[in-house]
Design a protein around this nucleic acid. Structure first.
Lengths: 334, 334
DNA sequence: CTGAAAGCGCTTACAG
DNA sequence: CTGAAAGCGCTTACAG
């Protein structure tokens, strides 16, 4: 310890026998400066263990070098993948990441944003529900890229998972392997993603002249587990031969529940999930799912943000990621 | 957009008809100030959408309000749990989190630390290998708490998983359920955690007068999967009736490998993992494991760091977290 | 190629 | 309770 928190550029300049201005030029590698003075200054800086005061610097440069990342929660694989993608891209651009979460509590959003204000050059924020873009823009003082799925009416550059398309892919897959009576276990209706997935399911079923069978879930493993006996009964009556679960967690709960009451998967019923979480490959039978590369999505968000911060004016741009299908045991019917 | 990045405290002061000093006092809620002036100033600030310049502020206060979090990687559940714990505790203390990873590349550590220097008030860093504490202290200019398992010779406050104790718990559990021939699938010998777990296994076996059987692994799922046929052969010859895998990923690979060659778990062999990753509950049979609450660990790290930053001098303190056992299907012998 | 000086936006003794 | 002024550590025109 006993660190040299108080070594300033002045000390370095004096130690190297130059002016502060010259020291600054050497340290930043900017402007004309003779190679030998530069080296002498850099050596002094190192000897004194000089650490630039980022705050003072940002006062002049008007940059913080930080990208804010605002997430609903810091829980689980999903989040860590996004952060990993954001971090990779940010690092390339010379940025560090300021991480903040509003703990799934809409009321916390405002205060959390407040802690970011003035600290960052730009923000990547994820809102899995409808937001008031005008208000957001007014509150924020930095360029913002949303990770959302509010496709229409976006006034803020957004990057979204195409849940509608993903649901169509998932449902179509069940149809393609021969299912005729496909149920959907939907997420909460307040969740935009859940709604889009439901829409994709409905449209695909309608186009195939199949009847929709919908169970209301909440994206939780538990709710699906509890619904399993009811669904099992219909499977036994041949009223259901396939289930598209609105997310993998519910699919997992459903699988465990169905197994308990003697349903064979995929022989009696085929199952598709959504999100492609890691558990999908470990559960038995392994779970077929659709999902996007969240790391790539995070990376793309930073790229759009970079354009924004450099005033390349991508205002209102919407990038969309279509999920990819992963076929596994739960739909392996032949 | 067209944000008011240029509204300063001067504008607020003028708008409210007071001096800059008074405006500052109102905004920070510090010092004597009449309630009505204060309210007028706050209203002006809001009207103008004033955002304090954090850099300028830190120039005076000598604080950044940021805690740096340096991790080996941003990949997976393990990491996200630590971050979640750190975030929760940091938020309570009024801190934000600056996240950085060195991508499992020891060579990157220096440059990553460099990006943190001067930006943060303190750092929580995780190094799953031996570090030179003197050098670390010299390089860094902020209080540091390590998440490590280098129990001895720590000059830096550290918080560690007690891998030795955890391994003893895991091995003892196998003994307690009746296993006599317990093999250990170890992690890489360059990894301190792997070594401690191996030591815990060895000591427990010795104390029980049982012979140690060690397979060298690398903490990867694949290596365990490949070793499965060899281990299976010994299981069939009754030379092995229990396996303590050095981590859950290897346990998972082993389980899958053993199932393929017709070994019944836990009837033919009982299996313990280490880490208690989420997959443990989803694999079939579910995996018994030992693990610590990483979120709690992250929280504790911030608490120690807070003491350090407030000069409460906990220099050299070492906190240790003993893993808890989770009994599941792979050791459910009766 | 180098230096003296202004100024970024803020807080904090110091006076009153 | 309020204000004038100094100063935090840095960068950047402006001169030379």
């Amino acid at each position: 310890m006993a660190q040299s928190m108080n070594i300033t550029i002045k000390h370095v300049a004096k130690h190297a026998g130059v002016s502060v201005a010259t020291a600054s030029r050497a340290i930043n590698g900017i402007g004309r400066i003779s190679e030998e003075t530069k080296e002498r200054i850099l050596k002094s800086a190192q000897e004194l263990n000089y650490v630039p005061h980022i705050g003072a610097r940002s006062l002049i440069t008007k940059r913080t070098g930080l990208i804010g990342v605002l997430l609903p929660d810091l829980y689980g694989e999903f989040f860590s993948e996004i952060v990993r993608g954001i971090d990779g891209a940010a690092q390339l651009g010379g940025y560090n990441i300021l991480l903040a979460s509003y703990h799934n509590d809409i009321k916390e959003i405002k205060t959390t944003i407040a802690t970011l204000r003035g600290r960052v050059d730009g923000i990547v924020a994820m809102f899995p529900f409808s937001t008031n873009d005008d208000e957001l823009s007014a509150t924020l003082n930095a360029p913002l890229v949303k990770i959302s799925n509010q496709a229409e009416g976006n006034k803020i550059p957004s990057i979204a998972i195409d849940n509608f398309e993903g649901a169509k892919i998932a449902t179509s897959h069940l149809i393609n392997i021969g299912c005729k009576k496909i149920a959907h276990l939907s997420g909460p209706i307040t969740n935009l993603e859940a709604v889009d997935r439901l829409r994709g399911y409905n449209e695909t079923m309608r186009n195939a002249n199949l009847e929709a069978i919908i169970f209301q879930g909440d994206f939780g493993e538990n709710c699906a587990f509890k619904l399993a006996p009811i669904i099992a009964k219909q499977i036994k009556c041949h009223e259901i031969d396939g289930v598209f679960a609105g997310n993998d967690m519910m699919a997992v709960g459903l699988i465990n529940g169905l197994k308990q009451v003697g349903i064979n998967i995929p022989e009696d019923v085929a199952i598709m999930g959504f999100d492609n979480i890691p558990i999908a490959t470990y559960i038995s039978p392994s779970l077929s799912s659709v999902g996007v590369d969240m790391s790539a999505l995070g990376k793309r968000a930073v790229e759009i943000l970079s354009n924004l911060m450099n005033k390349n004016d991508h205002y209102g741009e919407i990038a969309s990621f279509t999920p990819i299908i992963y076929r596994r045991g739960t739909t392996n019917k032949n």
